[in-house]
Design a protein around this nucleic acid. Structure first.
Lengths: 220, 220
DNA sequence: TAGATTGTTAATCGATTAACAATC
DNA sequence: TAGATTGTTAATCGATTAACAATC
């Protein structure tokens, strides 16, 4: 008994919502006030029937014969995901990738704010990353507490990733996005999303034909 | 008739292979010569039965009562994916993220090599990114031809992403990894993988409880 | 041999999609 | 009204998993 009557929403649905949202923001910027599931399907490569079904998990947002109101749908998806609020992020790792994330405008635009960048390297502490000054990893627990932060991003080398994740989880971080190539694990109650960029490349690589791969490899 | 007898492999299987590979490389480094599907399952959060089933799509690699030979399995998965060869990458976008990718050691370690970093900004052209000198985007077609490159990585702002993708596809790039928040589309024959980091964050965000999100948002 | 673990079947489970009545 | 498009059902499809015989 958790007091909620909400049915469990399939993982796939949750993964597609941000995709719809991205396209909707684009459409709104281009001045569209209405969009059909057919059009949304073209832009996202998702079957229109599936889009309609996905949305009905959360209510009825469309108008038959017309489609969906762009503004309303954006608003609804943002509330479902929780990105209508400003979500604070603690970022650990001030290397190339960490600095890129700290400086990334796209985060702010879509409702996130990096409130601290931490590193353990004394030569990095005190330097700038985006608008922030890099702080000591030792401050992690205090920052999480004081800033009420529940989201952590890991941008440290593979070897250090698990240790950082453990520390984040212990400090009260509930959602971790891990960019290192380590498959990081966290205790129940926290969630980790491992998104190693190289893993994505390896995956797409499969779809290159064998002939192309050999040609591309050439003589090293 | 394409002359191949290979059955179509489910997308999910292909997505998991790089995950297995990552963990296997780790295990090898730690000195393990053998691994069971049970152990692999723990480390990857995948059901052991599924791991065994996934692998049998490509042959029989294990020994009953013993498990899988770490070296052999790494070798087999690398051949399946094509990462036993060196795969050349053309990277477009020499901003923070592009520079981070160009300098990233993890790519080289797992069989990729960035052969060129391109940008259209004259103030960036000629500067360094990793070991390379940033070149003019106008050189794209020539580089792809001369270096036989089939993989492109997009690290440009959202507005420019589709244009870069079109140009890559026209130049003969077959696999594109897009880090911008645009949902980029390519003609048949090419493949694009849109991996917007903010989309991943939005997705994980859903799993924060409403109460936590409101607490975390605080007063802005 | 006894114990362990694979390869594989068969059952389950869940997600996707086509189709269409409802309705704007 | 005629045309369009949603919301929803029911069928299909495919992926996951439990179970176990084969076998190291």
């Amino acid at each position: 008994m958790d007091g909620s009557h909400t049915v469990r929403i399939p993982e796939g649905v949750i993964e597609r919502l941000p995709v719809y949202l991205g396209v909707l923001l684009q459409l709104r910027q281009e001045g569209y006030t209405t969009v059909s599931s057919a059009r949304l399907g073209e832009l996202t490569n998702v079957n229109p029937a599936q889009i309609r079904r996905d949305l009905t998990h959360f209510g009825q947002f469309g108008k038959r014969g017309v489609g969906y109101d762009t503004f309303t749908l954006i608003d609804r998806i943002q509330s479902i995901l929780g990105s209508n609020l400003v979500n604070r992020i603690v970022l650990v790792g001030a290397g190339h990738l960490g600095s890129a994330i700290a400086a990334y405008e796209g985060l702010r635009v879509r409702g996130f704010r990096v409130v601290a960048v931490l590193d353990k390297d004394p030569t990095k502490i005190g330097t700038r990353a985006g608008d922030l000054v890099v702080r000591d990893i030792e401050d992690l627990e205090r920052i999480v507490r004081e800033q009420q932060t529940h989201i952590g991003v890991i941008a440290v080398p593979t070897d250090a990733a698990q240790e950082v994740a453990d520390r984040m989880a212990a400090a009260g971080i509930r959602v971790i996005l891990n960019y290192s190539s380590a498959m990081v694990r966290v205790p129940d109650g926290a969630m980790v999303h491992n998104t190693d960029p190289v893993r994505e490349l390896l995956h797409t690589l499969y779809y290159l034909s064998r002939a192309e791969k050999i040609a591309a490899a050439g003589v090293e």
